[in-house]
């Protein structure tokens, strides 16, 4: 079976990162890479101090990508993200100073602390992949990925992302505490933030671009898998607890991430289990439950749905 292009390199990066620098974050790393490969964005929802920033830094460094960071506060303005024009007296004209968003990987920390105006500017940039400032449109670099974090516990002084905005994130996931042994090791070694700043790039930029193209063009989604995905989407739409099920954009996202998963498995076609494995990353934040069932765990409902739909084996 022919392997899609550059898959070994990608897996090598994952392997190197998760075994050397970011122990116990395999899942989050993998999902981040999938998001990057499909051109989507990822929302990390977890309490502070579990290494979200460290992971983003290491990720960007290992892939040889530029990294920008925005710490959101309630007085953050859109121009703090996109950049603004500054008058240059010597040259006698305005020069555009690019904001942190003009990087390959942008970490938006605590996105729910920014006010809605800033949030929507950011989300627009994520969707359009370009920024228009003072009538001039600037293209964002390629590849481009936003890695936003959100603290699910604190509620005071936050502007939680509405569900419609959540839909813009391809993947939402947590990081979780590292396993006991790994955490003990981390405690012994101390923070590795400095070390991470010096990770040599493990990948050429062209390789990454080629891998992204391979995921988009070489990985095949067959009829059976499409049927399976459609069955899942339909089940979320007709489920009695759910008010709004997966949108078509959600379905497309599911296909994209499943393609990336298949790619990372070294296959040039999607198997149903690829889809099933990424459902929990792609779907829950897109489901809107009926008001009377808001407290129900979305993962549980999804699990129940997945159990009902058999994997197509033949």
């Amino acid at each position: 079976m022919p392997k899609p292009a550059k898959v070994d390199e990608m897996n090598a990066v994952l392997e190197e990162l998760s075994s050397q620098h970011l122990k116990g974050k395999v899942r989050a790393l993998r999902l981040s890479l999938m998001a990057l490969l499909t051109g989507g964005h990822i929302l990390l929802e977890d309490i502070p101090g579990l290494g979200k920033t460290t992971m983003a830094l290491a990720f960007a460094g290992a892939l040889g990508l530029s990294f920008g960071r925005v710490q959101c506060t309630s007085d953050l303005l859109p121009s703090d993200i996109t950049g603004l024009s500054v008058f240059d007296r010597t040259e006698g004209r305005f020069n555009f100073i690019k904001g942190p968003i003009f990087n390959n990987i942008v970490l938006i920390d605590e996105v729910n602390r920014a006010m809605p105006k800033t949030q929507s500017a950011l989300l627009e940039a994520m969707e359009e992949r370009r920024v228009t400032v003072e009538g001039v449109t600037y293209r964002l670099p390629e590849p481009f990925m936003v890695l936003a974090t959100q603290n699910p516990v604190e509620q005071v002084g936050t502007y939680p992302l509405p569900e419609s905005q959540m839909d813009r994130f391809l993947i939402r996931t947590g990081i979780g505490y590292p396993p006991e042994e790994v955490e003990k090791g981390i405690l012994r070694q101390g923070s590795i933030r400095d070390e991470i700043l010096h990770i040599p790039p493990l990948l050429q930029h062209d390789d990454l671009v080629e891998a992204i193209r391979a995921v988009r063009e070489q990985v095949y989604v067959g009829e059976k898998v499409t049927d399976y995905i459609y069955a899942i989407i339909k089940a979320t739409r007709t489920h009695p607890l759910v008010q709004t099920g997966l949108s078509t954009r959600g379905g497309i996202g599911l296909v994209d991430v499943a393609k990336a998963a298949a790619y990372l498995h070294g296959r040039d076609f999607v198997a149903p289990e690829d889809v099933r494995d990424v459902v929990h990353a792609v779907c829950p934040h897109r489901l809107i439950f009926r008001p009377e069932h808001e407290g129900v765990d979305k993962e549980h409902v999804l699990n129940a749905i997945l159990k009902e739909i058999p994997l197509p084996l033949t």
Binding site: M1, G222, R267
Partner: peptide, 10 residues
């Protein structure tokens, strides 16, 4: 790997 390559590639 042989079986899936056929079945899931239609």
């Amino acid at each position: 790997s042989i079986y899936g390559a056929a079945v899931y590639r239609d």
